[in-house]
């Protein structure tokens, strides 16, 4: 996870905090907790910030070191996806409960062992697109924010696509950093880039059709690539 954007996130606004607190209490009051649920919530409280009733960035760093992974590791982003975490850097109790139950784990040790399977799950074609879109949404930390700045986007792309489309991602991030037309990337461009990875042959770019509805950003990228290859 790009650290830069994490720092940006502010403490919850009071109205938000209240809403989530009410949610969790009503959910909890509905039915008595099972043993498993209790254990899972127990772990939650090990990391949670007491005043926020959420796991905050500090809690996540602690969790990461217990799991033995770096907090910038893609697996943490995958974990967030599994939890369907709404806000970057924060896990609510509901999210935590939902996520760990879905992973069928109730101890840190089991969670650690579940991570490789989670990774496999994410890479399944039917999940990956959802994960990819999630990654973008997850990085929108500000209210009404629609774009992610180039620097963060480069880190994010490397994180989620770097292992699968290494060369293409390297070229693309290099291009993003060298151009000056765009200062940030919007959702449309983000989604289109995944399609680009999946559909366009690289590095020859032979089947790239400029008449198709690719965003201008990608047109420019292709032009830049061709210029460089010449």
């Amino acid at each position: 996870m790009p650290r830069a954007s994490k720092r940006k996130s502010e403490p919850l606004s009071s109205s938000n905090a209240k809403a989530s607190r009410v949610d969790s209490s009503t959910a909890a009051s509905k039915k008595p907790l099972s043993k498993v649920d209790e254990r899972i919530i127990g772990i939650f409280h090990n990391y949670a910030n007491k005043s926020l009733e959420m796991i905050d960035p500090e809690g996540i760093e602690a969790l990461c070191s217990d799991l033995g992974v770096d907090h910038t590791d893609v697996r943490i982003l995958m974990f967030a996806w599994k939890l369907k975490a709404e806000r970057q850097g924060y896990f609510t109790q509901d999210e935590w409960l939902r996520g760990l139950k879905a992973l069928q784990v109730d101890t840190i040790n089991k969670l650690k062992k579940a991570l490789p399977n989670l990774e496999k799950e994410v890479w399944k074609p039917e999940n990956f697109e959802d994960f990819y879109f999630y990654a973008f949404r997850y990085c929108l930390t500000e209210d009404k924010q629609k774009c992610i700045d180039i620097e963060s986007v480069c880190l994010l792309i490397e994180l989620v696509l770097g292992s699968k489309y290494k060369l293409l991602v390297e070229s693309f991030t290099e291009y993003l950093k060298s151009q000056s037309d765009y200062k940030a990337i919007n959702k449309d461009q983000w989604i289109s880039f995944l399609r680009f990875c999946q559909e366009v042959s690289f590095p020859d770019l032979e089947n790239y059709d400029i008449d198709q509805a690719w965003p201008v950003l990608l047109d420019n990228f292709v032009e830049w690539m061709r210029e460089r290859q010449r």
């Binding site: 449309d188 509805a213 201008v216 047109d219």
Partner: peptide, 13 residues
Amino acid sequence: PGEIKKRIESLIE
């Protein structure tokens, strides 16, 4: 055409 494309993207946004 390039400008039209940009406008389409802006409308998508």
